[in-house]
Design a protein around this nucleic acid. Sequence first.
DNA 1: GCGACCAATTTTGCATTCATTTTTTATCTT
DNA 2: AAGATAAAAAATGAATGCAAAATTGGTCGC
Lengths: 251, 251
Amino acid sequence: MQMKSTIPEAGAPIAQTAPGNGTDRQEASLHGEILLRLRDYVVEGNIPEGARVPERKLCEMLGISRTPLREALKVLAAEGLIELLPNRGARIRQLSQRDLEELFDVMAGLESLAGRLACEAITDEEIAEIERLHYKMYGHYLHRDMHGYFQINQRIHESIVAAARNETLRAAYANFAGRIRRIRYSANFARKRQRWAEAMREHEAILDALRRRAGSELSDILFEHLRNKRTAAIEHLAEAREATAAMAAGG
Amino acid sequence: MQMKSTIPEAGAPIAQTAPGNGTDRQEASLHGEILLRLRDYVVEGNIPEGARVPERKLCEMLGISRTPLREALKVLAAEGLIELLPNRGARIRQLSQRDLEELFDVMAGLESLAGRLACEAITDEEIAEIERLHYKMYGHYLHRDMHGYFQINQRIHESIVAAARNETLRAAYANFAGRIRRIRYSANFARKRQRWAEAMREHEAILDALRRRAGSELSDILFEHLRNKRTAAIEHLAEAREATAAMAAGG
DNA sequence: GCGACCAATTTTGCATTCATTTTTTATCTT
DNA sequence: AAGATAAAAAATGAATGCAAAATTGGTCGC
């Protein structure tokens, strides 16, 4: 039975052109669509860490044959989201604490670069927009609305990356951000309260350096800002994993 | 005819475990081997820019079927070395001048990060080794040996990346370096003589900052160093492309 | 002689099939 | 009954087959 000649029995609709996570979107081919869908699926943490990604099940789920699926899996492996064990299929890549530290440092480097480049090209309008976001975020801070704060925070960082006017950088940033986001979803990540005030102050320094187009200075501030984030995140993850381990032992 | 049950008639030997270009090496599966071979083949500039990568020819060349080849092509496309046009096959990605500028800036950011991280972790022995390389490179500079200079220069930058103790960073660096290396091979890249003395001075500043473990400072110096490289490289490439275009028009 | 149109060939995308390895299950031994 | 062993089932890796799209070559019209 050929797919093209009959209506597939299983599977959800394939077509979708959602803006998505920012990584390269290659439309119009089956493996491309599958890649987008699978990447989002994995990034959103729908499969637990270290779990197998069974080809057959996914094929049925998506209503396709194994060929395009396997092509997508190879790409996801190259992107670092999954692992391919020879003759033993795909697994969701389990990030060690060290992996996460490394990832955060690379993100810090990329944002630090983005800040430096942004100072060369950013317009007054873009700065005004970031200021607007900043004050909105400050409002969330005052109201102790962590979720709102977090969302605006992310938009500010994305705005800085966008202002760098470097598509290559943006794509790399999106890739690494995706790897971290996976953890965030599955570990129910949240920023520590004690870090909050400090982070807010750092954001003011970021905005100040950006206004003055002080590239080298902004680069330093952003690196340190992300470094502090890293410390908080790693601690949080360690606690979460301990809790999970304890639960598994207790239950 | 199944590959496993008969000896393949066409194609060069598949097995090879060369250290290669530094990007992740996944052995033991056909698509993995193909990926390594194809990547090196493309990075070394064996196929001209924009040229088609015909599946069938490559399959015969490598003595395999299209399935693993296509898997490898998808990965190379994700890495940014080739482009996949829907229903029109793979082409060697043609980098615009803007693409190259972006790539150099990202490389600058990654090396800048590497320098910063290296200052946190580098040992005296590693610094001594980089000093040794530095003086060797200085010798090549004095003897006007560009090729020797260039090779040592590359080893110094790789040493700094290695000293950052960040495998994620190293892999990303290798990926971007590969994209640029392709151009270098095919455009017969070389540094401008006029930049040479300046680059040598910058390298002394790099070494000095490294000795003092001045992370932020080293970060700045490395970024500027790569930025200057970028300018020289882009100019050179523009000239080379003009020459090629003139040759094509004249011949 | 040059360009538009159409059939033949090639190429691509995906499904299917086959061989091999891994995992599961059932049986046997101690 | 617990563990080891072997057969059965399932999953993986790669080749082949088939339909759709694109490229090529040739013919016709102007």
